[in-house]
Computed example of a mutant assay.
Amino acid sequence: MSSSDRALINAFREISNMADKINLPKTIVDRANLLFKQVHDGKNLKGRSNDAISSASLYIACRQEGVPRTFKEICAVSKISKKEIGRCFKLILKALETQVDLITTGDFMSRFCSNLGLPTFAQKAATHIARKAVDLDIVPGRSPISVAAAAIYMASQASDDKRTQKDIGDIAGVADVTIRQSYKLMYPHAKELFPDDFKFTTPIELLPPL
């Protein structure tokens, strides 16, 4: 077997193993395999490890198939650092002249909320808060993941099911300070952000200012 074929087989095995660990469907594995093969055949990313290319290919495949995962989630099942996956991600997009849809806050909301054990009404409120914050341009330049995390924090603090910034940060893969920065921008507009039918346990004026 040529070293090229061996590299492909090893990469496909690695992609499949990573996908299994986070329950990704075969369609995503197939797309990630195809991306890896295109990069490999084109010899576009010389000097980058195959593991890094495999991880980045899986990340891109998730986005293209409409079930995005965060860099942290891919990093958790990979041997590669978040930074290196991010670097390879950019290089692959450039090399293949492909693109991925922009991520929105809604892409992560249900998974983050269910991992935090939040009830449906809190998830609905958080989704509404995040969408409104983006529509009103309250959080310019903030990443969708940090906006989603800050919206979950705001909705949970107003309900019975309170979660700390650390709890949410651990699930979302962002630092507490990142959540705080988005929350700080959203807090002065809290009245406009909540859905009209939200049942407050903690009124807006008693929400933590930070």
Rank of each mutant, 00 (worst) to 15 (best):
A150L: 09
R13H: 08
D170Q: 14
R63Q: 04
I145N: 02
Q123C: 11
A150I: 07
S143F: 10
K162A: 12
E97M: 04
T105D: 06
A175G: 08
F89L: 02
L24M: 07
V29S: 09
G141Y: 09
K199Y: 10
F89V: 04
G141W: 15
E84Q: 15
R142G: 11
Y59D: 01
D161W: 10
G47A: 04
S146F: 09
T202C: 09
K166H: 13
S55V: 02
L102R: 05
N10V: 14
V29R: 13
E73Q: 01
G42L: 06
L210W: 11
T70F: 00
F108Q: 03
D160Q: 02
G47R: 09
M109E: 00
E14L: 14
I145Y: 03
F108W: 00
I92A: 12
D135P: 01
D170T: 12
N17F: 14
A155L: 07
T105Q: 11
I204R: 14
A125N: 08
P119Q: 02
A190S: 12
K26Q: 15
K21I: 04
V174D: 05
F36C: 09
L91G: 08
E14H: 10
P195H: 06
A125L: 06
Q64W: 01
A95K: 04
A149N: 00
E14K: 13
R111C: 10
S54G: 07
N10F: 12
I171R: 01
I9V: 08
S143N: 14
E65C: 03
R163I: 01
S146N: 12
Q64M: 06
L206N: 13
C62R: 05
E192S: 11
A148H: 07
I74S: 02
V134K: 15
V147S: 08
D107P: 09
L8C: 11
S78M: 09
G106Y: 02
I28Y: 05
G117D: 10
